[in-house]
């Protein structure tokens, strides 16, 4: 059974995304909306990971193999300036999208397994990840024209 593989992916992706939100937020303190929202979203990721953890542990007993590298681990730290902000939010967007898809995959498997507890966790939090994706897209759309067309730095 390969559920453990995806649960591990999702669990780790949530932890990594939470850290990345924290890092990007701290790096862009001069954009207070970004800093504040990133801090909030990092706490949401922590909560998701916390609720996934018991399931990840339980199913890991069936499949001890470590999952391979994630896209989310490609994040290599923050940048500065208007373009840097867009690129950092872009990274977060890709990572959040990966989480979003993982929720879907894990949710499907949870239904196949009739694991009501796991499915409830998926139903409870997948919407928050979807909102993270939307918020990142909204903020990127706002920042992109000025950063790419107007700003010199």
């Amino acid at each position: 059974m390969h559920l453990a593989h995806y649960l591990g992916l999702l669990h780790r992706a949530q932890l990594t995304l939470g850290d990345a939100f924290r890092e990007v937020g701290a790096a862009h303190g001069d954009e207070p909306d970004v800093a504040e929202q990133c801090a909030r979203q990092a706490r949401r990721c922590d909560r998701h990971a916390r609720d996934l953890e018991p399931f990840a542990r339980r199913y890991a007993e069936d499949a001890p193999d470590e999952p391979e590298r994630l896209h989310s681990e490609l994040f290599r730290g923050t940048r500065t300036g208007g373009l840097g902000l867009v690129r950092d939010l872009h990274d977060l967007y890709l990572m959040a999208t990966e989480c979003e898809l993982c929720w879907t995959v894990v949710g499907q498997a949870a239904q196949g397994l009739r694991d009501a507890g796991l499915f409830a966790v998926v139903r409870r939090w997948e919407g928050e990840t979807a909102i993270q994706v939307k918020w990142l897209r909204t903020r990127i759309k706002q920042a992109a024209p000025q950063a790419l067309v107007v700003a010199a730095d």
């Binding site: 979203q41 909102i131 993270q132 939307k134 918020w135 897209r137 909204t138």
Partner: peptide, 9 residues
């Protein structure tokens, strides 16, 4: 919008 984040629909 999502009122908590400002994400646009």
């Amino acid at each position: 919008h999502d009122l908590a984040t400002g994400a646009e629909f």
